[in-house]
Design a protein around this nucleic acid. Sequence first.
DNA 1: ATGAAAGCGCTAACAA
DNA 2: TTGTTAGCGCTTTCAT
Lengths: 353, 353
Amino acid sequence: MAATMKDIARKTGLGLATISSYFNGGNVREKNRKKIEEAIEELHYEVNEVARGLKTNATRTVGVVIPELNNTFCAEIITEMEDILRGHGYATIVCDCRTNRLLEQEAVDFLGRKRVDGIINMPVDTEGRHLRKFLKTGKPVILIDRKIQGASCDSVLVNNEKAAEDAMGLFFRNGHRKVGIIGGPAEISTAQERVCGYQKAYEKYGIPLADSLICREDYTIQGGVRGLEKLVKDNPDMTAVFVTNYEMTMGAVIGLNELGMRVPEEISIIGFDNLQFARACSPKLTIVAQPTVEIAREAAGIMLKRLEEGPEGDTSEHLTEKLNTEIIMGKSIRCLCEGQKLLKEKKNSGAAE
Amino acid sequence: MAATMKDIARKTGLGLATISSYFNGGNVREKNRKKIEEAIEELHYEVNEVARGLKTNATRTVGVVIPELNNTFCAEIITEMEDILRGHGYATIVCDCRTNRLLEQEAVDFLGRKRVDGIINMPVDTEGRHLRKFLKTGKPVILIDRKIQGASCDSVLVNNEKAAEDAMGLFFRNGHRKVGIIGGPAEISTAQERVCGYQKAYEKYGIPLADSLICREDYTIQGGVRGLEKLVKDNPDMTAVFVTNYEMTMGAVIGLNELGMRVPEEISIIGFDNLQFARACSPKLTIVAQPTVEIAREAAGIMLKRLEEGPEGDTSEHLTEKLNTEIIMGKSIRCLCEGQKLLKEKKNSGAAE
DNA sequence: ATGAAAGCGCTAACAA
DNA sequence: TTGTTAGCGCTTTCAT
């Protein structure tokens, strides 16, 4: 069996309280501090966090519930969060709910039973029912990527509307007028916002928008393939397509390959997420990149803050961070403008063709 | 505060032991069972696993230490393992050590302090020093993907040598003779085995192998780019290249794009892992696919078995599973054979062109 | 600064 | 079958 504080107490002749105090930053006489440290060394003592957790009613563990670990966007965020949390002594229990509301509910309940100190969640259930019970414990919940109306928790989101508007602006400035979109599921907030930004951009530029250019899929690779095929079939005059998440971007690229369509000669494309995949495409894809590292840092930071302030901090308002995306230029957008304008674009962005 | 067993005891008028017995599958009189269940319902009682853990010296938590979460191969495995473990009541604490020995050591120690019941590890330190201390506790460690000589733990590996031999056989049968390899770091067992299989295939087919065709990189995307550029530069007569992990495969594809080389006309390629990426490439990549789901299931299964049998089971030998890979045919291999043979190949595999 | 002692919520040995 | 009790390893009053 591992050594306990009792063993140290016996070995040093000190009381339990002194040892405990030593481990919790209390004042211990220099002489005793040395004795304790020797005993620790000798007995290979390590604090038992389980026992400590029972006493302090805290496990120094946070739960993370996401729709799909096997998804670069999620994986990138988790890697970074886990790193930060571990650096502060918190373990991260990851639960992948496979984009399934039921499993998400189970995962949250599971984490509740495991007595995690808080939960970071990229929600599948957009009503947030799965969180109700956990929230009653007064422990913090941080939502990432997708918002839940009226949920009493902090959120770290992305400015999706602007992201879509920016992407569309880029197409329009390159002379495109018939731009299709492969949007996500209507119930997911990010999908709503991205489609909304797409529509707003059309309005802003005063360009008429045909319904057939809007296609909604399910954020999966297969969805991307289907969406692309449908858009191409229904819109012979379409010159470009905007794909609104990574999986569907990959799907669209697969679809393009399988249809044998040349990018950007026959069709231009702006994808979403995963710079490395974009680089691996030929020609290199222009994409909307989300600030995954920042999302992770914000979420972890807020979590640590909430954990630190304890249940009292609750009186304060709940935070909602909104981070910006960035367009990474590739060569997947054809410029349909006359020579004059082409030169101008080139000077500005350096890669828009 | 949450309800405790004491509350239930008070409410039902029963003793603590009876309640505990109820939760641990003991025999409880039907009448009392009902009373307990009512009380649970009313008080929203849930077993406190922290307290239970303190008593039983088990946290029902397993740690997973991997080099990089943001890596499809790892992510796929973890998703599946986590799912299985959670189904059995075990939480999974994931630690990403960013391919860094020091961080790996810290992660294992961290998990030790968190008192996890076992560790599943895809090791970075190939000597296994980081596991020594944890192993002393008698708790199980399952190694995945990479072996450690002389480590006293179970391993779930892949038959990498055969994987490489198979891939090379495919090239050779298609008439290739100058096939380069982008291998991984010499200290990682999978990299050794893959390069070894590559060399054995050359021997088996009696084809001379030039040193310049072997190139070792670091399993990263950039490594793949570098490796490809180097091979192409040093071997003007090379007709094909075998890339030995996913990141480097992506890198090689990037390199090919950036050099403007056409696949398979100018160069043939077999990559590794990630079917979806392979599909997204144009032309579709032929790849060696590892059985990620099976690896996960084996590892989780062995872990559950070890956890169940407790420290006594140790007398038995340590298991070493070795799983097989599979070649997924794409269109990235050019056939250099005469008409006769070409037809034959086509009939056999259906896609080797 | 240090020690004694109570108790966090549970399990398990023992007695009834 | 059920109740009583000790104790898992720690933190935290409260004295000293």
